[in-house]
Design a binder for these strands. Sequence first.
DNA 1: CTGTTAGCGCGTTCAT
DNA 2: ATGAACGCGCTAACAG
Lengths: 357, 357
Amino acid sequence: MNNYKQPTIIDVAQEAGVSIATVSNVINRRKVPMAPETIRKVEEAVGRLGYRRNVMATNLSRRRSYELGLIIPHFGGYYGRFAEMLEQKVHRFGYHLSIFSAGGMNPEIERRHLESLLQRRVDGLVCHGLAMSMESTQHIVGEGTPLVIFNGWGWPEEIVKLAINLDFAKASYEAVRQFQANGCKAIIYAGRRKGLGANEQRIQGFRAGIRDFTADTPHAVLDAGELGIEGTLDEALRLSGGQKPLGIYTFNDALALELLALCHARQIRVPEEIQLIGMDNEFYANASFPSITSFDMPVELQASLVAAFLMKQIGETLDEESERLLDTHRPRADGRELLIDMQMVARQSTAQKTVTS
Amino acid sequence: MNNYKQPTIIDVAQEAGVSIATVSNVINRRKVPMAPETIRKVEEAVGRLGYRRNVMATNLSRRRSYELGLIIPHFGGYYGRFAEMLEQKVHRFGYHLSIFSAGGMNPEIERRHLESLLQRRVDGLVCHGLAMSMESTQHIVGEGTPLVIFNGWGWPEEIVKLAINLDFAKASYEAVRQFQANGCKAIIYAGRRKGLGANEQRIQGFRAGIRDFTADTPHAVLDAGELGIEGTLDEALRLSGGQKPLGIYTFNDALALELLALCHARQIRVPEEIQLIGMDNEFYANASFPSITSFDMPVELQASLVAAFLMKQIGETLDEESERLLDTHRPRADGRELLIDMQMVARQSTAQKTVTS
DNA sequence: CTGTTAGCGCGTTCAT
DNA sequence: ATGAACGCGCTAACAG
């Protein structure tokens, strides 16, 4: 156990021969004028004693926790990277980030985490739109804790003032355009988790793409969750009626990779017979064979935006960079959603090759 | 901003018509005898006011932060899962977990995070052995903050009292055994990040395996970091001199996947010509084609052990489950390292097939 | 320029 | 069984 008693501001004051207020002033680099000599004395005492300010006491006194809460569905892939980036970003503003995983969208766990964060008196919350159940979130807002949602859709206005979302719809639209340009004879969207906002967004963009580019091409929205991987591929092949190539756009790279493996197993050539586009740009999209075309998630940009908006809402003065960011990225008309563009990373799975059979 | 003033214990006391001490007693379920009527009154008041205890004040008063710190290299894959599990585990003991990423083993960032955690007066620290530079860690221990390392090797005794490690050496040993059993004519270990403890452990186990099972088989320890993927494969093929199959054991699944892609590109058949064994059992080890044999990381077990040991060191009374865990998993002879067994997950990349050419 | 003092919200004796 | 009072370590006026 830690019996070692940490030095306090009082110890420092004694050691330096000044009052605690002076020590506090020096430590916090307040703008009050101080004798350089005093500053030196205090700093020396701090060094000698190995003093470290007690965050609990500091924040209790300041009536602010200088802590932000983040709730994500899990720590894997994109979410983990987002958490890491966000922590970095808010740290620059002097805020600490408490990260919780909702344990795969379990509302019960989610409630507990929310409760924990409120007990910690977090100054702001960042929640993944998918992980949160609306009810839990309701009163938080009522209690005035600033809240920013990322990748959340369909939240009532009273709850969510701002959602910072990746533009899945547009990406899906682009995927269809790509397939069309590559001469796909049939186009499929293989989704997952019906009803989930992120999935709906993809479907919407997919449909728009079909409408605008290739309305008369056979197409379908499939649910890999229901059909399974094999079922999805079967259905897709059935729909294309032997026409090649067939374009399959998937909910994410994981699904794309599974489909790719199945194609290998069945000796279906990619991209000659089937073209594949995934989403997330995970490591394995690039390292698989053939490599899978995907959409890169601008995690850093999104995290920066979330941080900037939250800081602004909290009343923190922004640095130039953040100001510029908020200036170039504005919410859309209704002012409640900010969409972030994603970039397609073209790889072998959509390469144009002559079918050699 | 949050102008809404949260109710305090005083408000509750007033509302319930009792003193704050009573409220405190009720809230903390103290063993002091209380009138059921009093308890009811307090609980009602709490509900009516929506009171939530202030963690900062509570912990300041208790002279404990009830917070633990975790430093990992990054949030991806195994580390992310570990963080998630550990958070869950310590939460059951009433502890909060503050997670920091060392930003890919940057000692400067690491120092800052350590400083942050100490200012927060964390009751204990969990550090990844790779992410931490020894110097930074030195005085922490000196100051009496309990510290548990996971996956760290070669730490001086003064700093680390206990390391809870995955048994990479043994896994590597098993990998060699598997290759030998499968009749591999040459066996390669393709490592990364020379000098890193986790890599050294693998090499050590690999060498032991070669010695015990197949000393006269051509073998080599390669560094994919230096040679690159192509260079590694070239060198491996050169070494085998056309003999098949060739067994390649890699630092992790990521490397295995990259090698697999290269094999595909060069029309080298897996597992007929090259057998592959990875490490980490990532999603893509299973979803690739052919699927890659790998070692599963017992993340939950490791997290449970870390939590249990830390709790014990802090002086928390353990539940039965944790006691049992500590009883069945004891440190080795020197008492400073606890090794966790890993299970090989056999897949297609090491399947025994007749070469059909 | 520096020191005094009153909180911040809660835990914890010690009387009652 | 309940309450008054002090302390945790620090910030923030306000005096001086």
